[in-house]
Design a protein around this nucleic acid. Structure first.
Lengths: 144, 144
DNA sequence: TGCTAAGTTGATATCGATTCTCATGTTCAC
DNA sequence: GTGAACATGAGAATCGATATCAACTTAGCA
């Protein structure tokens, strides 16, 4: 996804939620886009003059508009990334030592098995799945 | 796993961590065993005289000893369940409406694909996976 | 261009789940 | 039975996250 297109989509989604795509929000989206991995609030604020309260508020707004996704782990801070349909379907490598979260893409064969299994589970339990989430928890390369 | 055996294992693990298996801790373990699904702190306390601070402390101790596992979702409260090797390997259905977490067991074929994929990812990224986590997020039967 | 309603901002106050503190109670080992 | 170590429970403290509110921008309209 190229930048211009991304911003258009975000604009549309915010507008649908009755909100505007302000410079502060755009700055956050660009930071997330540039990072390539989920960021904490301190990460987002680092080296920027954005006030903390605005960061929290705008990330919440962006999440409600469906442009940003919030990831909660057992680490101190939540992490934020662009919504999956603005990037691509992926999963997370969560380091239980330093708390960082990296992205990875699962082999297509695995995604196929997953989808099949999701259907089976839906039929046998009555649960209506919106999406699946696969995390690998362990130790990241730099903590080994 | 039968109850007596479970308590023996918990005793051993606590002892290995320099801790005791007290009545309060046992009460928590039995509540988790009886629930069959991950419980929040208020769930654990409900109808019991256990003080909140003890519940938090003892769940933390049990988690460190490897007898209990803590599940963090975006809901207000974290949830606790018996460690996977004291029950059986399973995954979670997380209701984004009411926040409840149900267990489900994945088809063996899926688990096989998962393990294979985990190995591939480990080799290509240098990440050392300890375990995987698969959640289905959606709407539970009673919220539909 | 001015006007107005609606949305946004940033500093600060507040909230609430969780953790910490500490005086008291209990248990284990010798 | 004595002492050291651990556990308990009530309350205070922590701190990420949220709410508040007055001042500021923007969009839409005449």
């Amino acid at each position: 996804m190229v930048g211009a297109e991304l911003h258009e989509i975000v604009t549309t989604r915010l507008r649908a939620a009755g909100q505007r795509y302000t410079p502060g929000r755009r700055a956050i989206v660009e930071r997330l886009l540039g990072a390539g991995q989920p960021l904490t609030i301190p990460d987002v604020l680092e080296g920027s003059s954005l006030p903390q309260s605005s960061a929290y508020r705008n990330l919440a707004v962006l999440e409600q508009a469906g442009a940003v996704h919030r990831i909660v782990t057992s680490a101190d801070f939540a992490r934020y990334e662009l919504a999956e349909d603005l990037t691509e379907h992926h999963h997370h490598l969560i380091c239980s030592n330093c708390g960082t979260v990296e992205d990875f893409t699962a082999p297509p064969a695995l995604e196929r098995s997953l989808h099949k299994a999701v259907h089976e589970v839906e039929e046998s339990t009555g649960f209506a799945a919106e999406h699946h989430r696969l995390d690998l928890v362990g130790t990241c390369k730099s903590c080994v």
